[in-house]
Design a protein around this nucleic acid. Structure first.
Lengths: 348, 348
DNA sequence: TTGAAAGCGCTAACAC
DNA sequence: GTGTTAGCGCTTTCAA
């Protein structure tokens, strides 16, 4: 590999001139610049990343801690990752893919491998937070810990998403609505989005005085079926669902159909999921989209902002947007319903 | 950040001694080693990755070119990625996540950011291959280009997978079998796995003299429905399916059921997909598993092998394994069928 | 507008 | 068993 010295020699200038020509940090005469560019092309020169990192204390690499346990919401995760990579490359950064492990975090940061970090799948009381603080690296969390104080976070506003989804159904005249939610693992791991989603849903239902039910649901056909049966058992009058579980969604729909309740004829559905999932269902599903890729990009934008100017933490909640796809049926409201709900499951 | 010099001073030894203590490349007295370790702990020292890369011409990072276009087989991709990351960390490497772009490949390799590369989603005539060659970096491809000569590749043996899946159905007595295959985009992009799969399927069917049909299928409910209708139209006597399309799978099953052909009562199914997908279907599906995570790990193993000893390229095809899950019904063979098939779609 | 040269932090001869 | 030191390739003062 050619070095900056080779380029300098070939162009008949000094190393520093080449360096400055590359960085643009001082004016270079047209003639010199031309010679340098020529030499660079001829030699196929690229600065050595390690040498540069050593000299500048920057790597132009950002670390991405992503949950690679497969099974849950792979779709969404992939989209976050894609957004982060896109955003990063747009800003001239590469992405080092890290596992969800505080040990890795310590190692990577203190050996100066990355300039900053994006941390995905943040839990309420995330074990990586102390390590993050210790590292004193700029960082953006995707998700919301219990105490986001001083941290930079971005996420979909799941509380509003839950409310928007519920309200769409309420406004359509439905009076008995179930939330088919995230898997119990997610809830018990205290990844806050499930709780926020539930809170928003419950809030909207109570405000409107409609009957509601919250059912955590495993990410499989069996889980979906079990949840559907539970819903039908506890709330036979159900006419509408909010589904916040990408994997279960198709199975929920078909189980309801098997039970003689077609979507959208007998049962209306609003999903909370990525757009492409909602579109690819047997029945296109009206949904509150999770703009995962956009959120990934925003995370990187926030990060570059932080690097330029280490301000105080900022929490950015992306507003949910509902897209109609015809899975909600307007019903003539048969007078107001009663508030019942499943107190056990519905605690915020 | 503490440097090796700080450690040396604190331990009362020279830098090189610290370096050697760390690398174990020469014997260090028990006493000295103890003092050094102590100093390292107290200072929280970690070698600076860039400095080390500069001095050793190694980064301990491998590049992973992964297709981040969402939509197709996200599941499988995630599992490959997870396998690569796991394998890498097991061998002391970190992973730089790169987009599928020759420009990126050139940049990353010639600036010495990585020691080696794993290239996913290889097409028959992949544009990245020249850049790869140019880079003279050890590389392992996941997938198979048209001419793998001199390259290291690993993939599932899709030809045998197709054959195994078909044979399972043939052996169960089925005489009219359809392959619901990969999306046309995949086929036309000439990602060879779809072709190999088809070849294996067709070969087995022709060898057994059964009727068969090959139908590329879009990765959506609509695509699945269209394909099912096409199958029923062209081959109404169909009693068995091989499905090589993870996204379409659930919709194929339900569309058949809607057409009055339940799985496995009227229609037997063997899928070619990751295990967790087959398990999470409404009906557990007998499948030839795609051991994506294992393949990812193998890729890294091959890579470390190559780095240690740049041998000639080696193509490793992982043997398919069929797992019974009850979606195949044994039928009393009603005498041998005729070879018809869809010549247009079934060309190898 | 350009050069010379001192590091950045580490490894690995080459000494002893 | 340990120390000295010359790089690795780049950036950035300091000088001109």
């Amino acid at each position: 590999m050619a070095t900056i010295g080779d380029v300098a020699r070939r162009a008949g200038v000094s190393q520093s001139t080449v360096s400055y020509a590359l960085s643009g940090k001082r004016p270079i005469s047209e003639e010199t610049r031309r010679r340098i560019e020529r030499a660079i092309d001829e030699l196929g020169y690229r600065p050595h990343a390690g040498a540069r990192a050593l000299a500048t204390a920057r790597t132009d690499v950002i670390g991405l801690m992503a949950p690679l346990r497969t099974g849950v919401d792979v779709h969404v995760i992939m989209q976050f990752v894609a957004g982060v990579v896109t955003g990063a490359s747009r800003s001239g950064y590469d992405v080092l893919l890290l596992t969800q492990d505080e040990g890795v975090l310590d190692r990577v940061t203190s050996s100066s491998m990355v300039d900053a970090l994006v941390v995905m799948d943040v839990e309420n009381d995330d074990k990586r937070l102390p390590a993050l603080e210790r590292s004193r690296q700029p960082a953006v969390l995707i998700g919301l810990p219990a105490d986001p104080h001083g941290l930079s976070c971005v996420d979909l506003d799941f509380a509003r998403a839950g409310a928007v989804a519920a309200r769409r159904l309420i406004d359509a005249g439905h009076r008995a609505i179930a939330l088919v939610g995230s898997p119990v693992e997610v809830v018990s791991r205290h990844t806050s989005y499930a709780e926020r989603m539930t809170r928003g849903f419950v809030g909207a239902c109570e405000a409107a005085g409609v009957t509601y039910l919250v059912v955590p649901t495993a990410a499989s056909a069996a889980g979906a079926a079990a949840s559907v049966d539970r819903v039908l058992g506890m709330m036979p009058e159900v006419t509408a669902l909010v589904v916040h579980n990408e994997v279960a969604l198709p199975h929920v729909i078909s189980r309801f159909r098997e039970a003689g309740r077609g979507v959208p004829e007998q049962v209306s559905v609003v999903a909370v999921c990525p757009e492409d999932v909602a579109v690819s269902m047997p029945v296109p599903v009206t949904s509150v989209d999770i703009p995962a890729e956009a959120i990934g990009r925003i995370a990187v934008e926030m990060l570059t902002g932080l690097m330029a100017d280490p301000a105080r933490g900022e929490v950015r909640l992306v507003s949910p947007r509902l897209t109609e796809r015809g899975s909600v049926r307007e019903v003539s409201a048969p007078s107001g319903g009663t508030v019942t709900g499943d107190p056990a499951a519905a605690t915020p």
